[in-house]
Amino acid sequence: MFKDAEKVQLRDEVFCNYDSLERPVEDHKEVINVTIQLLLKSTDYDEHSAGLTLNYWTTLTWIDGILNWKPEEHDNIQTLIVHSDYLWKPDLSVYNRVEQSGSAAILDSDHCIVKYTGQISCVSPSNHEILCQPNLKYFPFDTQICTMVIGSWIHEGEEVNIHTPKVPVSLSDYSETGEWKLNTVNITYTSGKYDCCPNSTFPYVEYTFSIERQSGIHVCVAIVPAISMFVMSIISFFMDIKGQERNMITVANIIVHLLFIQFYAWSLPVSGPDPPLLMTYSRDSLIMATFMLILTTILRKLILCRMDSPKWIGTATGYAMNSRAVQLVFMFDGSLKDVAERLGDDDGRNIIENVQSASSSTNNDWLVLAKLLDRVALIAYFIVYFIMCIAFIP
């Protein structure tokens, strides 16, 4: 009881004539150095709203030149617990908040510890959502870089300066939440010297957060279906051009592409400097699947064509069938046996031996041309998909 009475008396004494609206310095030229430390609790990122939500405790420490006393004269009392509303507080604020209305101060109304030396320490819980434009180029293996900027709202650097301790951001009590993992936190101090105000500085501190998406679930719902669409496109090349199965697989592949693109068109935000490579891959793969349907229709018409082929086609197909590379490609294609025999090419005939001959009514030149175009398209597909996969690698 006696101790509390002494504290009340001490509080009344040190706060006599104290003005919480004025900087607590004896000389107006004196700078108040404020040390700020963040105790990060959790983070949550929403790419649709382009905002990173930070839950943290803010520790502010500074020297008040007015609030000091001698402990030996006050029953050896060395500290007082005072509500922040009765103190002058540094107006440090978050500059790049999503919601610009209301107070941007990081030090909310709370209790602070005042030491006899004038040192004041305040710890206040804070929650701020900062602007962070997403870059989804490498979705779902993307990493976002978000920056929180803290500085004095009204004071110049010659009045209130900012310092950070040896450990500016403590992660000792940090908890991972959601699909994002915090990789690093970097601190950058800027003196804030501008041409408009050569005699003043406006210092601020930038906290740069690097967060990485936990992509496990996206591998199942995005990467595996994308690979399956590629496999469907390639498998269709090994089906009979004249058969309906090839058309059915190709049409089904196009439908799968459309559903895949529409799903992620609704799931991903439309903002950002670069479109996701996954969407670019799906778009190009859809174009190739559509081309596959057009190519299949044309090749089927060629095979069923009964018109005499131009002379240059016969010459070109004859030259092609004499090529070792073409013979190797058509090694298991029995429909070209007649062509090899007609050209008198023993090697070509040996490659396709033991396979039933093609119908005599079929125009061999059109058949060979269709087969050649089909295999050229297959090789082109492999090359294009390989380039697309390489571009997707970060």
Score class of each variant (00 low, 15 high):
residue 6 E to H: 03
residue 7 K to F: 04
residue 9 Q to M: 13
residue 10 L to E: 05
residue 10 L to I: 00
residue 13 E to I: 08
residue 13 E to A: 06
residue 14 V to G: 04
residue 15 F to L: 04
residue 16 C to V: 05
residue 18 Y to R: 12
residue 18 Y to T: 05
residue 26 E to I: 11
residue 28 H to A: 01
residue 28 H to E: 09
residue 30 E to V: 12
residue 31 V to R: 02
residue 37 Q to R: 00
residue 38 L to T: 09
residue 39 L to N: 15
residue 41 K to I: 09
residue 42 S to T: 01
residue 44 D to E: 05
residue 46 D to T: 10
residue 46 D to C: 13
residue 48 H to V: 04
residue 48 H to Q: 05
residue 52 L to M: 11
residue 54 L to I: 06
residue 56 Y to S: 14
residue 56 Y to E: 04
residue 58 T to S: 04
residue 59 T to V: 11
residue 63 I to W: 10
residue 63 I to S: 08
residue 65 G to F: 02
residue 65 G to R: 07
residue 66 I to T: 04
residue 66 I to Q: 07
residue 68 N to C: 14
residue 70 K to A: 13
residue 71 P to H: 12
residue 74 H to S: 03
residue 75 D to E: 15
residue 75 D to V: 11
residue 77 I to R: 02
residue 78 Q to K: 09
residue 80 L to A: 06
residue 81 I to D: 15
residue 82 V to Q: 10
residue 84 S to M: 00
residue 88 W to K: 14
residue 90 P to L: 02
residue 90 P to A: 12
residue 93 S to R: 01
residue 94 V to E: 08
residue 94 V to R: 07
residue 97 R to D: 14
residue 97 R to A: 14
residue 98 V to D: 04
residue 99 E to C: 09
residue 102 G to I: 12
residue 104 A to R: 09
residue 105 A to T: 09
residue 106 I to L: 13
residue 108 D to I: 09
residue 111 H to N: 06
residue 113 I to W: 11
residue 113 I to K: 14
residue 117 T to L: 00
residue 117 T to E: 00
residue 120 I to P: 15
residue 120 I to C: 15
residue 122 C to A: 06
residue 123 V to C: 03
residue 124 S to I: 01
residue 124 S to R: 04
residue 126 S to T: 03
residue 128 H to T: 00
residue 129 E to H: 02
residue 132 C to D: 10
residue 133 Q to P: 01
residue 133 Q to V: 03
